[in-house]
Simulated scan of single mutants.
Amino acid sequence: MARSAWRAGLLVAGLLALAGCGERAPSASADWRGEIKEVKMAISGNNDDPQLVRRREVYREHLSKALGMPVRLYESSDYNGVIQAISSGQVDFANIAGGGYANVDAQVGDKVAPLLTPRQAEGETGYYSALVVRAASPMKSLADMKGHSLGYVDYNSTSGYLYPRAALRKQGIDPDTFFGKTSFAGGHTQAVMALANGQFDAAILQASGGTPETGFTRGPLRTLAREGLVDIDDFRIVWTAGPIPSEALVARTDRPQALIDLVRGAMAALPYDEPALWTEIGQLDGSAYTAVDRRHYQEIIDLRREELAQRRGGGRP
């Protein structure tokens, strides 16, 4: 525990200032250790990606060492499981996408707060939605998709549902009438495979590790291509939206402040304390965590509110 906890402690002061939380002084008391026997964190499970499996184990081991106590990860096969786990207080922390956090914020407000988000070496803290078609498709642009079928990822997916629908409306396109048929695939992996199998004419997928101008190096398409399940050349991006604020490490604010500060510091120290592991789990060289608060996700919170208003008005998914 010594080295990581010491490093985490040094980082806490700076992170508190950056996050705008300096008014709450960390508790010097260790009494919370007598009340909390293990730290619980919720994450979205995806055993299709070995990097994500490895990442979960690295996070667990790193936090356990830094905190000097067991860390238990609760995996959910869908977005809603993580949302409900942190909203109900069943877990102390969670890794959650912006759309999921907006859902949590609507349910419990400031009982859950964002702490950290990944930042790339160039300073970017976001990723993209990509409308993907099969390479052999006659569709060359978004306009060509009118009347054709589209697969969304999940209602609680930021890049696979919430953000691209808002972006389409900003372009004067009603996503509820523009496409011939829409449905949910249930996950990014499922959306890729459904597109490959011809269930949809196009799918909305997450894309990262680049920009629309430079191309992307990460995302479900790249992951499945690395595993040999699809050929990346069999697909083509015809439209993008973004950048979208990246996922957040969030905390229940009713947990001891000293615990929150230690976890925040330990996670922020990971790319510096364990640089080899950081890149091994798929993080880009030069990337790290940066402190955030609710304001970082305000756009997503507003978009979710607008989407709910659209649905109440009779729109279809």
Rank of each mutant, 00 (worst) to 15 (best):
L221M: 14
L249A: 13
S87M: 04
G99E: 08
Y101C: 02
T177R: 02
Q190F: 01
V91I: 10
Y155T: 00
E307M: 06
E57Y: 04
A136I: 07
A130Q: 12
Y127N: 14
N197L: 01
R33A: 00
S137A: 04
E122M: 09
S87N: 06
E75D: 08
R3L: 13
D31T: 12
L229T: 14
D261N: 15
L52F: 05
R226H: 10
P243F: 09
R7L: 14
Q107G: 00
Y152L: 03
T158H: 06
A258Q: 13
L131E: 03
E247S: 11
A113I: 13
K140F: 00
I204H: 00
S87C: 13
T211W: 02
A5M: 08
E274C: 04
R24F: 10
T117A: 13
Q199L: 07
P26E: 09
A97F: 11
A276F: 09
A102Q: 05
E57N: 02
H296W: 09
E124R: 13
G81F: 03
G81T: 04
V53Q: 00
R312G: 12
G126F: 01
A2W: 12
E122T: 15
A276V: 09
A121M: 08
R305P: 02
A8C: 02
A130G: 13
I173G: 00
A28C: 09
Q310D: 11
G198W: 15
A121N: 08
G186C: 05
S159H: 01
P317F: 15
A130K: 12
H148V: 01
V132S: 10
A191E: 08
G186N: 12
L195H: 01
L259T: 03
D293R: 14
E75K: 00
Q171G: 04
D201S: 10
N46F: 09
V39A: 11
K170H: 06
R7T: 13
W239G: 03
I281C: 04
A13N: 05
K170T: 12
Y74T: 03
L52N: 00
